[in-house]
Design a protein around this nucleic acid. Sequence first.
DNA 1: AGATCTAGCGTTAACGCTAACGTTATTTTT
DNA 2: AAAAATAACGTTAGCGTTAACGCTAGATCT
Lengths: 325, 325
Amino acid sequence: MADVAQRANVSLMTVSRAIRGVEGISEQKRVEILKIARQLKYVPNSAARSLAVANSNLIGISLPTFAGEVFADILNGMRRTFDSAGYSSVIDTTEYNPEAELDWVRRLLSWKPAAIILTGIDHHPEVRDALRSAPIPVLEIWDQADDPIDVCVGIDHRAAGRVIGQHARDCGYEKPSFVSAPRGHDVRADARLQGIRDVFEGVDVLTRRPELSDAFSTGFEGTRDLIFAAKPDVIFFLNDHMAFGGLMACQMAGASVPDDVGIVGFNGLDITGVLPIRLTTVRTPRRLMGITGARNLLARINGVTVQRSTILPIEFCPGETTRSK
Amino acid sequence: MADVAQRANVSLMTVSRAIRGVEGISEQKRVEILKIARQLKYVPNSAARSLAVANSNLIGISLPTFAGEVFADILNGMRRTFDSAGYSSVIDTTEYNPEAELDWVRRLLSWKPAAIILTGIDHHPEVRDALRSAPIPVLEIWDQADDPIDVCVGIDHRAAGRVIGQHARDCGYEKPSFVSAPRGHDVRADARLQGIRDVFEGVDVLTRRPELSDAFSTGFEGTRDLIFAAKPDVIFFLNDHMAFGGLMACQMAGASVPDDVGIVGFNGLDITGVLPIRLTTVRTPRRLMGITGARNLLARINGVTVQRSTILPIEFCPGETTRSK
DNA sequence: AGATCTAGCGTTAACGCTAACGTTATTTTT
DNA sequence: AAAAATAACGTTAGCGTTAACGCTAGATCT
């Protein structure tokens, strides 16, 4: 920067003003200085800037995993908004490990980020402490909370569970089961399971939690096990990919869908658009969630007060993998 | 940090040494200082550190998109390695826009990152300039280059195209076609197409480039169009998800696979594990690629010289969606 | 005409940390 | 026993940028 200042015969401050685009400099000099900066291939030093102003244009985003469409969609929705606002995304995947999330939050805080985004509302207790005491906006996404750390945008998973549960009941299914992920791996799925239990009160909802591999195989194996062991008449899945795996397992086992066994997915993933049989599922507004979350967060960064907790609507999609009422 | 130093009755330097875990301090004091730091909830300031040492522990990763398993796998392979080495990932998605990548590279360079990772070898010309002049390790991943910016880890897409092309020819297919993405959206897929052309010399490889939606639908629609318009006898797809869409389209159109039409996917994605018919495809070592890339990059960061260009082997998987020889 | 304002710049002092070099006391060497 | 080495600290001087304030010349006001 000193080089640029010298070549332009101005002070450091004037260069700084020119580059940041703030007031206090004539348009003429700004143009000239920017030209010289480009010629000299001047690269600003964000660390120095960050040190001087005590914040940065980094936004931290923590996800459980990159696998699956769900978080990709949410990320897409958010990133575009942040990017055009000039922020860079520092991304973490926790792999469902709260300690890992805590470590990452600590590391991130040392950068004085403009905001932090976490997935869900269940965190290591110290995460809450660390973030509450730091004066930065925090967004919790994908789940809903009455008392979020800061702001929250998501859907009501338990209610979603009740919707699909009720549908299954209305269709005459009586032996519900659920193919999920290992315990602790997806608390949102557990909330949906709880919603299903709410509806099937008194009935045991048999749950399979296969070892984690990919969603398709997990659904396939979980279903195969369930069918041979317990003969449920309807199977709920953690998501549509697992449901597709389940569908294939039924086909292999000679169980006819939806008569012998009903199949219910979740999320309304892309694959549902090309299946010869319409999957019963719930469409979740993942992209919108990302966009809404990003908007709310930007508003918070700029000091505008926003609704603390936003719950987005979901869309139930009855299909041909459950009996008609 | 000054607070911690005062409470511990030591100088700033001693605290700095204690926290960084470097030599020059007794084990006793280190423990004591770390305890006090925790009590006082001391949060280090990475910007100040970065300013003082003129580098950071940020690693920039640029991907075309979050959609699809491919980049998720690569990312997973890399991130774990970086994470445990203490680096944080600043991630960008270019959406196949070279300008966007350039902008991001510039922004990132202002943070003096420890390394930068780019997808593929085709970049905005100024990206190369900017990175060549900056003294930081650069990894280009997923493609292969004779003259990478710095180091490169990937597969030979054209050779992969030749492998599947040759297989199709050997199986007696004569009217090849390819369902791809819009022009400029995936240069690697174009390289594979070129490989197929190498094999089917003289024969026109009909190409469909449907508007970009999700992979399943894209495959479905591209296939439907192809079948009605040109009656190819084998269709190559950009990836397995598109191939599955194509499979569904064939089913709907009454075209029998593999006799009327052969289907060839790419990547060996998860879905292939649960299909009732084994998809002919090529398994790509995406995770390994991520891990190898990350390792090479860490070695470069630590000053070790590594092979400039690494080409990983692929595994051809003949299946039941192409005729047997 | 003198006082007051303002646009456009420059000076100075941080921001929090660490490299490099000093200093001191203790240990090891010759 | 003196010299040399070493362990364990402390001091000083930056790293590159910006906030806050200072200064000057010309414009505007009364």
